[in-house]
Amino acid sequence: MFYLELLLVGLVWGCTYAMMALGLTLVYGLLRILHVAQATVFTLGAYVGLLVANHTGSLAGAFVAAALAAGLLGPLVYRFIYRPILDKPPFVALVASIGLLIAMEDGFRLLFGPYGLSFAKNTWFTTAVGFGGLSLNLVQVWIAVAAVVLLSLFALFATRTRAGVAWRATVSDPSIAESFGVGVSGVRHTSFFIASVLAGVAGVLVGLLNNLVEPGMGSVISYKGLAIIVLGGLGNVPGTLLASLLLGVVESFGTVYLGKLLDRDAIAFLFLILVLMIRPQGLLGKAR
């Protein structure tokens, strides 16, 4: 029973990671950029969601507002920060992205205070759900539901719609896609939009899960998101999803068995390093 509970909690964390990491993979697949600043988008989503929820009392409104705010910020980051430096060496975009993340984290601190804010009314947080003898709170259930729904929608989009097919063509070869009349710029903006909406929604969910929204909440999850997409084999969507769930479970078991030696983040990165030393191309990546 105990193991099952650990597994379940791990999978729920894996779902949040997946919502974050899928966007990171999209961006990496298209542009070869490690988009650390997605953490900013995530945190913005969480704050917007919290403010709307506390003012209007509507969680649905909170999610919509968070998705919109995040969905606006992401493409702006692409347009004004990444696009002008795409032809520079890869560390340039990465460092710019880290800079944005750190600056914005401080910005959130100045705007909303260092200690974080809580939801005025967080019924999901206080509602326990029995689940075949296991008990989860409603936020955890919604995280799983949201992840499955959003990721399935994404899968449908990528395989069934014209835009999705264009997107996949652009990922595999931008110049060929362009010669077939695919608007590469549009595809890139769309990808940042999708990635950011997912991150914004994940931000609200994690805020609800901890009943706390704080300036630094995005950074660690975003660093782990990077670990996950590397683990999955950079730019590989199924690999990313697999790695997300796996990392969630490894952390959840690891904190129990290795908790005396390492903290949660260290366990995650230890796992990453071990896997990469054995498979340098990641779990599902192609050997180079």
Partner: peptide, 11 residues
């Protein structure tokens, strides 16, 4: 804020 902003602007 300044460090991060500087990194971003320099890059």
């Amino acid at each position: 804020l300044v460090y991060g902003g500087l990194l971003l602007l320099v890059m």
